[in-house]
Design a protein around this nucleic acid. Structure first.
Lengths: 231, 231
DNA sequence: CGGGTGGTTGAAAGTTATCAATAGCTGTGG
DNA sequence: CCACAGCTATTGATAACTTTCAACCACCCG
């Protein structure tokens, strides 16, 4: 498979990598299409590959022993995912599902140590990536510890609008199908509570809801709720 | 300052490092004593150094704009901490306070990139460390999303007993001063609720409390609460 | 021995989950 | 092309859990 480096050149992960190194990397990659609803890998599976999302959108979920699900994170184009080996584990800690048709590059996990030894800068970049993810996780912990549900949902929605927002007339649309259940699983609450909150916001003209759809109409208003509480 | 490599040789972080590399590393390190209650660094300060805890115990906390505090993690001997640069940020995201008198090694942040370029294996090790931390964070998010407070507290106490447990006759003692407030800040609840829960456990003979003190008397019983709920 | 920090506990209030019933969209198949 | 199945969403009522408020206790340190 021949993958042109123009495909990934713009990604910050490969910022300072030489063309030669990049070509070598891509020479070992496989491109793969994931239809909507399919899983790239499942929780508990042996970690055979690690991935880079080129196009589309994935959600990474975990299921607890008692069957409850949470969304660990949303994967956006340009993100690395499934790098279990770097986390010193042999199986995937979660399931990655395509919420829209997606395209990802993959490399065999065995190559990972080789990669980083070969190219220390990639190691540094990846470390930064994981570091950012750690910070996000801490932010989420902080929010869940100290904030009431409405503020958490507001933060989650604003985050989505930043990462997957598509400006259109009169608002910002979240550019992939997202259900109340999804938002609940991202904020640690139930779909009922999310539904109530969104209904209330809609009544105030802050957002516009719909089936697997969400458009932010009043960014400032939402921000206010996220920041300090009631508006 | 001369630091013998025997001081850190046993740590897994330096597992496969040569004596020469290790000596070089230690040649650039500064050892520092932190009295109980003092901070090694504070949230928002410019990240001038990164650290390795040799002895003692630290807690890393964050304060939200509205003054609420949470404990991000507890630092145990052998742990790296304050590696903000690796997370691509110039300031410390939290405050590290000694809960017992502690000893730490420190290196100037500037040396970090040098270190990892020089010694790719260290980069891999560190990445694994951060990876584990990320996993811990996700575990915590999962718990806070799906479990009621009592189970979360049980998990937190069990974790502490694993990381800082000291076996003594008839139980496992948490080997550093810990308050109800601390446990509350680790589990996202209030000291009142923690106090009630611990009182109930004490009545059932599961633990023995006290001022800044905690001894686990019935590990199996606690584990049961952590796993499935009510016993 | 007095003050302060850390801890306990009751009562009331509030938030969020749970239970339950209904409505509405979407896509599939007769 | 319409109807039905199934999933997604809405919403009221109730219950449960946790926080908040308040008062009090006890231990440790200076």
């Amino acid at each position: 498979m021949k993958i042109d480096r123009s495909v990934v050149r713009s990604l910050s992960l490969f910022d300072r990598m030489s063309d030669a190194d990049l070509d070598w990397l891509l020479g070992h990659a496989t491109a793969r299409r994931i239809p909507q609803g399919d899983a790239v890998f499942e929780q508990g599976q042996a970690a055979a590959s690690f991935f880079l999302l080129l196009h589309g959108r994935l959600k990474v979920t975990q299921v607890t022993e008692d069957g409850q699900q949470i969304i660990v994170r949303v994967v956006h184009p340009g993100d690395l995912f499934g790098f279990a080996k770097a986390l010193q584990r042999s199986d995937y800690p979660g399931t990655a599902t395509a919420v829209t048709e997606s395209i990802a590059l993959s490399w065999p996990t065995d190559l990972w140590p080789h990669f980083v030894e070969q190219n220390p800068h990639l190691a540094v970049s990846t470390m930064q990536t994981i570091g950012q993810r750690l910070e996000e996780a801490h932010t989420r912990i902080r929010e869940m510890s100290t904030q009431e549900v409405e503020r958490r949902v507001a933060h989650a929605v604003l985050r989505l609008s930043r990462q997957a927002g598509k400006h259109e007339q009169g608002g910002i649309r979240i550019d992939f199908p997202i259900s109340r259940q999804d938002i609940a699983e991202m904020t640690g609450t139930t779909l009922h509570t999310v539904s109530r909150i969104l209904s209330a916001w809609e009544a105030k003209g802050l957002v516009e809801g719909g089936r697997q759809k969400l458009v932010i109409r009043d960014l400032a208003g939402l921000t206010q709720i996220a920041e300090s509480g009631r508006d």
